[in-house]
Design a protein around this nucleic acid. Structure first.
Lengths: 338, 338
DNA sequence: AAGTCTTTCCAAAACGTTTCGGATCAACTA
DNA sequence: TAGTTGATCCGAAACGTTTTGGAAAGACTT
C-alpha cells in the first residue's frame, strides 16, 4: 500500500507537507504541490480512510437503518426507490452509504448509539420504524445526527422528511365524494405509524368538509400488507355492505382489497371504487389499474440525504421537509349515477 | 468517547489486557475478564472501527458496486431483492455493506482499485456491469477479492454467481414447442450481457433438439427495457408476421412485447404467446399474467455475500455458483390447435 | 536447589493520517 | 540596521487499537 510517507520520500519533503499539499492548504508552494501530486498519481496513492477518520473523527459515511428490508417488502419497492435517491445524493455530496441490517433480536443486544458508534457513521437515516419502537426514544436523546423518514420528530440533531399525507388523503377522499360517493370506508395501516394517523385525518377532514358524518367503524386496519388489506376488505363489506368506495392507506392493501371484492364476485370499480396510496409501479399494470396518491419516493430519499448532510455540516436549515403528493386517476374509481 | 484506555484505568489493568480480554484471548484470567467486561458495559464502550482496521488491515465491510441503480431500474426490482439477500447474509456473517455510487464519469476519474482502497472495503460484489465495461479487466487483474453477479469470470480472487440461464431458456422455449409452436421469435437483451449469450444458447438448443431450424433474423435485441421490448416486437412481427410465440430475455421486455401486440390490435396469448424471464413481481398482476422463468434473486444475493466472505477468509470453496431456475406457467402462453 | 513449565500480565511499537507549534529565510518596513 | 512580515516548510504528538516479545511469579520436575 502506498502511503503518504512513500510520497514524502519520493518528493523529498516531509509527510506534513504532503498531507497539506494534497488537502489543498495554501501554505505550500504551487511548485511543490504539483510535484507532490505528480508523485501521488504516479505511485497510485489513495488515502487510507481508517487513518484519516481516526484522527478527524469523521467517516464521511451515512448509516441507513431499514427496519424491514425483507423479501416480503420487495413488492412495494418503495424502500428501494428511496434508497436510490439517498444513494445518489450521498454520492454527489461525497458520502458513502452503509446499510445496517438490524433484526429485532439484534436490537435488544445493542443500543442504537452503540450501533452507530461501532459502525462509525457520522449520521443515520432511519425508515420503516414504528412509533413504538424502543429505538425511537434513544434516537432523539442521542447526539448522533439523524433523519427520519415518515416520522415527525424534532430535536437539535434530528430532522425528518415525509409526504403531505393529510392533503394526499384529503384529495383522494374528496375525489371519491366528487364522484358521488358518500358511504366511504377506509383501510388504514396500523396505529403505530404516523402516516396512518395523518391519512386518517385527511379522510375525516374530507368527509367533514362535505358534511358527511364520520363513522369510526368504517375504518379498519390492514397492517400495510396485501393479505391484511384483503382481510380488512372482507370485514368492512360484511359490516357495511352499503359501502360504495374505499380509500386505502397503501397500494398493497388496495390490491388486497380488490382481490376481496373479486372474491365476493363483485367488481372494481363497477360495484366498489377503490383508491390506494403510494403509486407503486404495480398499480399501473393491474386490472383495473389503480387510482392512487403518488408519493415522491426517490425525492424523499434524496432530500433525506441532503438534510442529514446539512445537519452534519452544521448548516442552518429547516429540520423538516414535507413533499407534495398528487392524485393519479386510473380505472378503479367510478362516478356514481345520481 | 469511551476507549480501551478508560476501561484499563477503571479496571486497573493495562490496555493490552483489556484488548485481549475483550477479544477472547485465553491468556487472561477469567476473573479479570469478567471485571473488564463489566467495566466495558458500564462505561458503554464500543470499539473504534477506524483504529481497529488501521492496524488489522481489515474493515469487515463489503462494497457493493451497482452499475445501474437508477430510478429507471426500479420497476424490475431485481437489484433490490438481490441486495436484500446480500444484506441479510452479510449481517449474519458480521459484515457491513457499503454502497458505491459510481457513475460512468466518475469511473473515468477513479480506477476500480483506487475506489476500493479508498472506501476501504475488504471485498466487492459487482452487478449490473456490462461485458465491455473497462472496469472488468481491472477487476480480474486486481488482487481485491470480488464476486460478480451474472458474469462468469475466473481468478484466484474472483468468483461469480449466476442462474442457469441456458437451462432456463431451454425449458421456456421447449414449453412453447410442446404447446405446438414452431415459429418462435426471441427478444434478447444486448450483446454485452453474458445472460443474453446464455439464453440465446438455450433458445437455439431447444429449437435444435426439436428439429426446428434456427433463423437468426428471428432474434432481436430489446436492451432489457420495456420500451426496447416493445419496439423489438413491432420489428419482429413486421419481419416475421407468421410468428406465433416469442421468448423474451427479461420480463420487462416481455411486458413491452405484450404492449406491442395489443398496439397491433392483436391479443396475448390468443394470437401470440409470450414467455418472459426473471419472474418479477409485476408479472403476476398484468393481464394476461405472464408465463416466465423464475430466478432466485434473493438467493443469488445471499450466495454472493457468502461466497465473497469465503474468499476473504481464505476458505477453499468453489468460485462459481449456478442457481436453478423454474418455469412459472401463467396465462401468456396458449396451446396451438393441431 | 536448580531448572522448566504455566499462567497471567504488560510496555512499547506499529498502523497512516492530521494538526499544533514553531523554524527558516528572504523581502519588506521604519 | 534592526525589526517585522510572509511564504514555505517540518518535527512530533495524537487518534484508538492490535500485536510482539517478553516478564513475573508460582507450581512442578529432576
Amino acid at each position: 500500500m502506498v502511503t503518504i510517507k512513500d510520497i514524502a520520500k519520493a518528493a523529498q519533503v516531509s509527510v506534513t507537507t504532503v498531507s497539506r499539499a494534497l488537502n489543498g492548504y495554501d501554505d505550500v508552494n504551487e511548485e511543490t504541490r504539483k510535484k507532490i501530486k505528480r508523485f501521488a498519481d504516479q505511485l497510485g496513492y489513495s488515502p487510507n480512510m481508517a487513518a484519516r477518520s481516526l484522527v478527524s473523527k469523521k467517516t464521511k459515511t451515512l448509516g441507513l437503518l431499514l427496519s424491514n428490508v425483507t423479501r416480503a417488502s420487495s413488492k412495494d419497492n418503495i424502500a428501494f426507490e428511496v434508497l436510490c435517491g439517498m444513494n445518489d445524493r450521498a454520492g454527489e455530496l461525497d458520502y458513502d452509504l452503509v446499510l445496517f441490517s438490524t433484526t429485532p433480536q439484534k436490537q435488544k443486544i445493542k443500543s442504537y448509539k452503540n450501533l452507530c458508534q461501532e459502525r462509525g457513521v457520522d449520521g443515520v437515516i432511519i425508515m420503516g420504524i414504528r412509533l413504538d419502537d424502543p429505538y425511537l426514544e434513544e434516537i432523539v436523546s442521542s447526539d448522533i445526527p439523524c433523519v427520519l423518514i415518515d416520522i415527525p420528530l424534532q430535536g437539535p440533531n434530528v430532522g425528518y422528511v415525509t409526504s403531505d399525507n393529510i392533503k394526499g388523503a384529503y384529495t383522494a377522499v374528496k375525489h371519491l365524494i366528487e364522484n358521488g360517493h358518500s358511504r366511504i370506508g377506509m383501510i388504514n395501516g396500523h396505529a403505530q405509524a404516523d402516516v396512518s394517523i395523518q391519512r386518517l385525518k385527511g379522510y375525516t377532514d374530507a368527509l367533514e368538509s362535505s358534511g358527511i358524518p364520520f363513522d369510526p367503524t368504517r375504518v379498519l386496519d390492514g397492517s400495510f400488507s396485501e393479505a391484511g388489506g384483503k382481510e380488512a376488505m372482507y370485514r368492512l363489506l360484511s359490516m357495511h355492505p352499503e359501502t360504495t368506495a374505499v380509500f386505502c392507506s397503501s397500494d398493497l392493501m388496495a390490491l388486497g382489497a380488490v382481490q376481496a371484492v373479486k372474491g365476493l364476485g363483485r367488481r372494481v370499480p363497477d360495484d366498489i371504487s377503490i383508491i390506494g396510496f403510494d403509486n407503486i409501479d404495480l398499480t399501473a399494470y393491474t386490472s383495473p389499474s389503480l387510482t392512487t396518491v403518488n408519493q415522491h419516493k426517490y425525492e424523499s430519499g434524496y432530500q433525506a440525504a441532503q438534510l442529514l448532510v446539512d445537519l452534519l455540516e452544521g448548516r442552518n436549515v429547516s429540520h423538516h421537509i414535507v413533499l407534495n403528493t398528487e392524485l393519479v386517476k386510473r380505472e378503479s374509481v367510478k362516478r356514481l349515477p345520481l
